[in-house]
Simulated scan of single mutants.
Amino acid sequence: MTTATHSAPTTDARTQKAAAPLRVAVILGSDRHGRFGPVIADWLLAHVRGREDLTVDVVDVAEADLPTAFSPHHEPAVRERLARVAGQIDAADAFVVVTPEYNHSFPAGLKNLIDRHRAEWEAKPVAFVSYGGISGGLRAVEQLRLVFAELHAVTVRDTVSFHGAQGHFDDEGNHLDPAGPDAAAKVLLDQLTWWGHALRDAKEVRPYGS
């Protein structure tokens, strides 16, 4: 009888992967008409794209248009959308969730996206950029930390939050007083990058859960 064997990645292969930029998925969590989320997401994406150690993909809940029902009998077009989003999440090394706050929590469409995946989130870091009124979306972030902990993801401690968000950006999407938010974005992305490398490297040595 012939037994198949699986060799561990070589030192050179591990070194190359460790040096490769992290793949960050920015998740735009609101799907409401007239949402302000794209302004916040574009601001964040400019910071991510300005870094050589990160590459970025965007997962927009509104564009994904995922069904709310869980069924094995979805139409082909729906299955294609589900597979595309699952592939984006699985390929990512790290995530930044951009979320508003609805009734002390986060949007239903975002929860639907999260709940449709499990292994794709495991042992990966998640950071948060939130926006809203007086709370700046921070209560939504606290709820999301509980959800991602259940999915074995690691949430980054520091956040970026915009209180009264619409009053802080001009018509072109530029922040009117960028120094503070820019500094906060750097801290968030630095922490996300550290955790992303640490967890990606660890999984190369020992698969998560083993």
Score class of each variant (00 low, 15 high):
Met1Gln: 01
His6Asp: 09
Ala19Thr: 08
Ala25Ser: 06
Ile27Glu: 04
Leu28Val: 15
Arg32Phe: 11
His33Tyr: 13
Gly34Val: 06
Arg35Ala: 00
Val39Glu: 07
Leu45Phe: 11
Leu45Glu: 10
Val48Tyr: 03
Glu52Thr: 12
Asp53Phe: 02
Val56Leu: 09
Asp57Gln: 12
Val58Phe: 05
Asp60Ser: 05
Glu63Arg: 14
Ser71Val: 07
His74Glu: 12
Glu75Phe: 07
Pro76Ile: 08
Ala83Lys: 06
Ala83Glu: 11
Ile89Trp: 04
Phe95Ser: 04
Val97Ala: 02
Val98Ile: 14
Asn103Ser: 11
His104Phe: 15
Phe106Ile: 14
Ile114Phe: 06
Ile114Pro: 00
Ala119Phe: 14
Pro125His: 04
Phe128Ile: 08
Ser130Asn: 05
Val141Ile: 03
Glu142Thr: 12
Leu146Ile: 08
Phe148Cys: 07
Ala153Gln: 00
Val156Arg: 07
Val160Gln: 02
Val160Phe: 07
Phe162Val: 05
His163Tyr: 09
Ala165Gln: 07
Phe169Leu: 14
Asp170Arg: 13
Asp171Glu: 12
Asn174His: 13
Pro178Thr: 00
Pro178Met: 00
Asp182Met: 11
Ala183Ile: 04
Lys186Glu: 11
Lys186Val: 14
Val187Leu: 06
Leu188Asp: 01
His197Gly: 00
Ala198Asn: 00
Ser210Asn: 14
Ser210Ile: 10
Ser210Asp: 15
